[in-house]
Amino acid sequence: MSPNAIMSSDREQVLRLRSIVMAFGRLFAVNGVDLDVAKGEHLAILGPNGAGKTTLFNVISGDLTPTRGTVMIKGVDCTSLPSRRRPRFGMARTYQKARSFPGLSVEDNLYLAVVGKRGRHLSLWRSGTDRSWREQARAAAETVWLTEELATPVSDLSHGQKRQLEIGMAVATDPDILLLDEPASGLSRGEREWLIELLSDLGADITLLLIEHDMDVALRVVDRVMVMADGQQIAAGTPSEIEHDPVVLQTYLGTGASA
């Protein structure tokens, strides 16, 4: 474990990363990151463009298998487990660029998120179970203010609505571990306030990992912050500690910004 590894309290650990290295040829996008996240904790991962935040997310969600290191989710070694197996551990994620299914309606998108977690993927019948899952999808739509758009094809949604849907698809799976990659990107001020409200109201049992460039959003909804640069962790602490950390200020604002 690296000396400046970010460690949480004695609560149950739901996510544990050890010496994660993700190399693309000779480029080390993530280089030796350790991280422990406890159940119900809200953690922001900050850093400039190219710091390796999204790559780290991709390693956690299984979209990428790390070159070295281990990923433990709820005590199980998931390092080589493909992304499609991660929802079974209660993990859900969003992507930096909203990734939904433009040819389907909002309700069908949310329904697929529920089916993905619950099963019956190959079913050729619509049963009573489906009706309850549809209800779950509609409840998720209500959470993200998309009730009026249930029948709308996703291709007809605005950018902000697509981001709402992306979050709705993650919430619809009733996750234990929620990974949000720049959820506030492209949102208006009003929509950002809504996002802060939504994230602040997440259940105490939901663990949140958040990548966000908007410091206002990030620091208002998390308990802890990890700052990355060049694939490594450069600082860690509470939001107030990070706001005044000279290394962080230097990284974000450049030389002479130590005040």
């Binding site: 499609r84 197996r85 299914f101 433009p102 697929l112 993905g116």
Partner: peptide, 15 residues
């Protein structure tokens, strides 16, 4: 149809 639109997203949903 989800696979048609975005196979990577479908995999991350568990399919």
């Amino acid at each position: 149809q989800g696979v048609r639109d975005d196979p990577v997203r479908m995999a991350s949903l568990g399919f």
